[in-house]
């Protein structure tokens, strides 16, 4: 009896998957430029409890604001050589207000994509004479948080840069490649099973709209790269190095996939 129900269920599921495949086959590429059909993309925000949504919305409760305020203070702080972020980019950073919506961009110098955190880190080393920190370094994280906050409400832009195309394609390939002992690919959960449950948690579509994000699980703010590492360890694969081509490619693809969605700067997630 249950076997039969299971088989019928599987058949229904298969039919559903086939229907989804044919839909996907006829639909144009992802992104806001399609102009066809409703945008079914959802931020992880939409799947959170009302209490968590309230926590994110209220700047006097959102713990990510602790980093935003720190980033704002760091922006004005003079480094050992007497220079500061504000010195070049202006006291209120108006010239870089949309930076968090635009990155990663293609960096002609290194011939690789450059993330926002990567750019902040490089700027700090070059112009302020500070040591390299990485995306999850305390000060880079705080400055990223402040810039993400400045870009709150802006749509994520996917630079129309042909030099980024191979990185996007590589990122999409990685997104669809099974990996780890659990033999799972990103898209199996975040495209095909998004909205279903993994244990007690709703599986999000995985759009990077709110990074750096305050995760309750981390009890801290963290970068998109850190989040991706968490997923990769979760499927029992070995994470990519922070500056690996794979990390960059995946981030370029994920931002392209989320193009047009609104920057939450800074988000709270469970």
């Amino acid at each position: 009896m249950t076997r039969r129900a299971g088989a019928a269920g599987a058949a229904a599921l298969l039919a559903g998957v086939l229907a989804a495949c044919s839909l996907a086959g006829s639909a144009p590429a992802l992104g806001p430029a399609t102009g066809v059909g409703a945008d079914t993309r959802r931020s992880g925000f939409d799947d959170m409890s009302a209490a968590l949504q309230a926590l994110q919305r209220d700047d006097t409760q959102n713990p990510g604001m602790l980093w935003v305020h720190e980033g704002q203070a760091l922006w004005a702080r003079r480094a050992g050589n007497g220079r500061s972020c504000a010195g070049c980019h202006g006291a209120d950073g108006d010239s870089v207000a949309s930076a968090a919506a635009r990155h990663p961009v293609f960096d002609a110098e290194t011939r690789r994509p450059l993330t926002l955190a990567g750019r902040i880190d490089r700027c700090r080393q070059r112009h302020l004479g500070l040591p390299e920190e990485g995306a999850d370094g305390a000060e880079v994280l705080a400055l990223s948080a402040w810039l993400a906050h400045r870009a709150r409400g802006l749509p994520i832009e996917a630079p129309d840069d042909a030099r980024l195309a191979p990185w996007r394609e590589r990122g999409e390939t990685l997104w669809r490649r099974r990996m780890g002992q659990l033999d799972l690919a990103c898209h199996l959960c975040h495209d095909e099973r998004a909205g279903e449950r993994l244990g007690g948690a709703v599986i999000p579509q995985g759009h990077p709209t709110g990074y750096p994000t305050y995760r309750l699980e981390w009890q801290s703010l963290g970068s998109l790269q850190r989040r991706i590492r968490g997923c990769i360890v979760g499927v029992r694969a070995e994470p990519f190095a922070a500056d690996a081509d794979e990390s960059l490619a995946l981030e370029v693809w994920m931002r392209r996939r989320a193009a047009g969605m609104t920057i939450e700067g800074v988000a709270v997630r469970p």
Binding site: T60, Q61, M65, L66, H69, E70, A73, L74, A138, E139
Partner: peptide, 24 residues
């Protein structure tokens, strides 16, 4: 790098109001 805190105190409070103070 420094201790940071977020404090919320409502503005325009009338005498006798019960207000919520929030601190992180």
């Amino acid at each position: 790098t420094a201790v940071r805190a977020l404090i919320h105190v409502p503005r325009q409070v009338r005498r006798g109001d019960v207000v919520e103070i929030r601190a992180t």
